[in-house]
Nucleic acid binder design. Sequence first.
DNA 1: CTCCGGGACA
DNA 2: TGTCCAGGAG
Length: 312
Amino acid sequence: MTNQNARSAESVAKNAAPGRTSTINTDDLIEWFAADARDLPWRGPEVDGWGVLVSETMLQQTPVARVMPIWREWMARWPKPSDLAATSQAEVLRAWGKLGYPRRAMRLHEAASAIASEHDDTVPSDVDTLLALPGVGTYTARAVAAFAYGKRAPVVDTNVRRVVARAVHGEGDAGNPSPNRDLADVDALLPSDDRDAARLSAALMELGQTVCTVKSPGCEICPIVADCAWQHAGRPAYAGPPKKVQRFAGTDRQVRGLLLDVLRRSEGPVQRPELDAVWHDAAQRDRALDSLLVDGLLEQTEDGRFGLPGEE
DNA sequence: CTCCGGGACA
DNA sequence: TGTCCAGGAG
């Protein structure tokens, strides 16, 4: 195992100066991950690119605990992209359940069709090819390349951004996302070897999720605390611009969720009054219903009822 | 920059 | 009640 970021006398000296950029010991992090990583189902050796793509899509803005049962069910029902592609949108939306952001399910369904028809039913390993798939963005494309195919690709999610902001830059937390800067920061940390780089990417995410957390970081058990610029700077509080908080209660998002839940739980299309019952504000209800139709998450039947797409 | 779900936990 | 959670797209 090679390590391009071995700690040097110079970097240790730099670490001692608060507020300065530091270099973390990537070997320590990789070793820690090998010993302490959680045993998540999509990390199994038998999991292929499809399993990783499904897990990464489900994990977008969604906690691990909620994803696990749904991911297992999907893998059992649809072990290959073509299996999902052959399924109706209505069935896919029901199986997505209450994971949230159901447009993800529609995009994954579209991606499965593209993979089946254009990529020989095999999830691509090339980042640019992955990026062309619906629902696959900067994060997911690199996560699949690294975790499924062991490639060297900077994988930057909210956790990695926080770890880098702290350990490398000595800041309390990351500011607004800046994709190019974030990718460059992480790229600079990655060993040149593909396998080691992929392991480090997984380790950085795991550290941010389980140790270097937002509220109560476990610095006392952190494998790279000796090199952490934030630690050396006295763990300063976040000093950047205030982060934007999105409301949920009372928003169109909530109404859309309530409407869709009626359809998920019904056998087939329902009459308008059944939908109207879920929300008091008629104008907002209509707006939400219309947006669901526009998004293709709902369809209207010939006789005026509403149902999940692709349903009779 | 705004919108897009939903649940758990302080 | 507020906050966070393996983001992506318009």
